[in-house]
């Protein structure tokens, strides 16, 4: 479990993270979304125990992570820019991981070899970016972490490999109750992966949602009335967005489906449709509601 409480971090000329609070329960996958420079990487590096926060607390499985060897042995961080020791082969790196992480599993390492078609005696720095990322996943997952922190992990992987990695993550979450924190600037990339999403903008967490909640709570409706739109109709609805095309009114509204249907039916519309929204659309409207234009923040 990851508990982040009111964490702030300042760099010389700017405040990178401002009072962020969120929790990732054990065995769940949390997606941290935000544009470049939103503070994602800084936040993740603090959670991985690399940077020290200026204020606030970060607990992993109940203990502060910073300079905590016990917790860091079970917490692995996969940065967006990978680092390997100069001139090492996959096998040498594996030996290194084995000496560092007590939970390292040779068995897992060999099992994963089938998934990653890479020669263990090849020097990592001579490989392509995508292959290096595969090696990083291979090594990281072989260390059987309790908590896995991934910074833009799917960049540079092809579609097939992406799916393979996602499946591996699902598998570890399901079998070992691994906790995953994953960052991305692309919602579509992680929407099928995460249980929960948080959006970081200019160092602040502006929105946090369970994905299931999101999908059931927001709806797009199209209605048309014979005469003008009744006043009472609009007053009693939580409208995120509205647009009129001729006599057809298009709205994005928040609320339970039955309640909305009932309310609309009561005003006798001549046309009424309730349409499902893509996750992306949901974010566009949710954030528009909070005063942010989504193009500036994610996608």
């Amino acid at each position: 479990m990851i508990q982040v409480e009111n964490v702030s971090k300042r760099f010389s000329d700017m405040e990178a993270v401002k009072g962020v609070t969120f929790t990732v329960p054990k065995g769940s996958i949390y997606g941290l979304l935000g544009s470049n420079g939103a503070g994602k990487t800084t936040l993740l590096k603090m959670i991985a125990g690399i940077y020290r926060q200026d204020s606030g607390t970060i607990f992993i499985d109940g203990e502060p992570i910073f300079e905590n060897v016990k917790r860091k042995e079970r917490t692995l961080f996969l940065p967006d820019a990978l680092y390997f020791f100069p001139h090492t082969t996959v096998q040498q790196m594996a030996d290194f991981y084995k000496s560092i992480y007590p939970t390292w599993s040779d068995e897992r390492f060999h099992k994963l070899k089938e998934l990653f078609p890479i020669d263990v005696n090849k020097k990592i720095q001579r490989m392509s970016k995508g292959m290096q990322r595969q090696v990083a996943f291979w090594l990281t997952l072989s260390a059987l972490p309790d908590v896995l922190i991934l910074d833009e992990p799917l960049d540079g992987l092809d579609a097939v490999m992406r799916q393979k990695v996602k499946n591996l993550l699902f598998q570890d979450v399901a079998e070992r109750e691994m906790t995953v924190l994953i960052s991305s600037h692309n919602l579509r990339e992680v929407e099928d992966l995460c249980d929960r999403i948080g959006i970081l903008h200019q160092g602040t967490l502006i929105l946090e949602k369970e994905l299931d909640d999101l999908k059931t709570d927001i709806h797009k409706i199209q209605v048309a009335f014979k005469g003008p739109i009744p006043d009472l109709f609009l007053q009693n609805m939580d409208i995120l967005y509205k647009e009129q095309r001729g006599s057809v009114l298009l709205c994005i509204v928040r609320g339970k489906e039955e309640k909305i249907t009932k309310h609309i039916q009561a005003h006798n519309p001549i046309l009424f449709d309730l349409l499902p929204l893509t996750l992306e659309e949901i974010f566009i409207y949710e954030m528009g509601d909070k005063g942010y234009a989504i193009e500036n923040i994610i996608l």
């Binding site: 590096k45 690399i50 860091k72 042995e73 680092y83 560092i100």
Partner: peptide, 8 residues
């Protein structure tokens, strides 16, 4: 970043 993410 890498070295200091290790459990040492």
């Amino acid at each position: 970043d890498y070295i200091h993410s290790l459990p040492l």
